[in-house]
């Protein structure tokens, strides 16, 4: 890639470095996983030095106690962190009267208060159901478009030679620091001018999607380009020798190998767009509003209508959770292990 290809050893050197990186990146992850499993089984911190001989009883006790204390502390912090969310969840499962009568912790003494009525009444509201589908209609295209466009662009930035490539990539990196609010007014004006055959860009789902795609792309390209660039060059050259065109190489070698990065990017992008309020507030009209905007419109200044907000919040949480757990295993996979050397 670089001009340092002066000798015949340099092309070999680059992929070697890449390969080792991938291997070493995989190793600590595995180690951590093993440690985690050991701790879970009650081994404590002692397993970190399992091979060390002749540890005195006192030092072993200290080690084990230290590990246990740290774990207990972490669990406490985690529980503390979860308390408000848990409280909201409990409130979403109680009737309005019960919620007005006392705090959510009363549910422990009166388990019979639990009811799904708030959820069923919420799901009976057509504007909420519409806003749910709007969220889906905004999030899925915004995620798919970003992943597809960014991976193609990232491949070009990483592995295709074309004039001005590095400068163009610098521009992409520079776009990372442009905040969303800078573009709100200009884009709103621009959208206001687009009116093709009755279709108004301003206020439409398409407008929201395009805005999300535009602001998701710089980071997506940056992330994927760096991941693709770490793929050993030999692999691409082998595919080229095997008769692959650039498109085949991308589809059959790069894309599968980029799995972890693409999955991470997909999840991040999905969560960002799903949880976005600002862009929706500016660009979506009532017909195109996603859940976040609908929930916001239900906020009252003085009387909290908790029977709508609590179940609404949890319903909007459900899909991201499913997505996260479906794809989280791709985060930790070291796919490149064994390719070179």
């Amino acid at each position: 890639m670089s001009t340092a290809d002066g000798t015949d050893v340099t092309p070999d050197g680059a992929p070697e470095g890449g390969g080792t990186d991938a291997a070493t990146a995989g190793a600590p992850a595995k180690g951590r996983a093993a440690n985690g499993a050991g701790n879970g089984a009650g081994n404590g911190a002692g397993n970190g030095a399992a091979g060390a001989p002749h540890r005195s009883l006192a030092s072993r006790l200290v080690g084990r106690a230290g590990g246990t204390v740290a774990q207990v502390l972490l669990v406490l912090v985690a529980l503390f962190w979860l308390v408000p969310t848990f409280g909201l969840f409990v409130e979403s499962l109680r009737s309005t009267e019960d919620n007005n009568a006392g705090g959510w912790w009363k549910v422990f003494s009166h388990p019979s208060q639990i009811t799904a009525s708030a959820y069923s009444s919420l799901l009976d509201k057509p504007d909420f159901v519409d806003s749910f589908w709007n969220t889906v209609l905004i999030t899925v295209p915004a995620t798919v478009l970003v992943v597809v466009i960014a991976s193609l662009a990232a491949y070009a930035f990483a592995w295709l030679e074309f004039p001005g490539r590095d400068w163009l990539f610098l521009v992409v990196v520079a776009l990372l620091v442009v905040p969303v609010q800078v573009a709100l007014l200009p884009v709103a004006k621009l959208y206001g001018n687009i009116d093709v055959g009755g279709f108004k860009m301003y206020g439409s789902i398409t407008g929201v999607v395009l805005f999300h795609v535009a602001f998701g792309l710089p980071f997506a390209i940056f992330l994927l380009r760096n991941f693709f660039a770490a793929i050993p060059r030999d692999l691409l050259e082998a595919a080229r020798m095997d008769g692959g065109s650039e498109w085949t190489i991308f589809r059959r070698v790069i894309f599968p190998l980029g799995g972890p990065a693409i999955a991470s990017l997909g999840i991040f992008q999905f969560l960002w767009v799903w949880n976005d309020l600002l862009v929706a507030l500016v660009f979506a009209n009532t017909g195109a509003q996603p859940m976040t905007k609908w929930l916001q419109s239900q906020m009252r200044q003085f009387t909290g209508n908790i029977d709508i907000l609590a179940p609404g919040a949890f319903l909007s949480l459900l899909v991201p959770l499913v997505v996260f757990f479906a794809f989280q295993r791709y985060f930790v996979q070291g796919v490149l292990a064994g390719s070179v050397k």
Binding site: D12, P15, L235, M241, V335, L336, A337, S339, V340
Partner: peptide
């Protein structure tokens, strides 16, 4: 056909 020093096998 080429055999690479690093083998360059497709890991997936």
């Amino acid at each position: 056909a080429m055999v690479f020093q690093s083998y360059a096998l497709y890991p997936h």
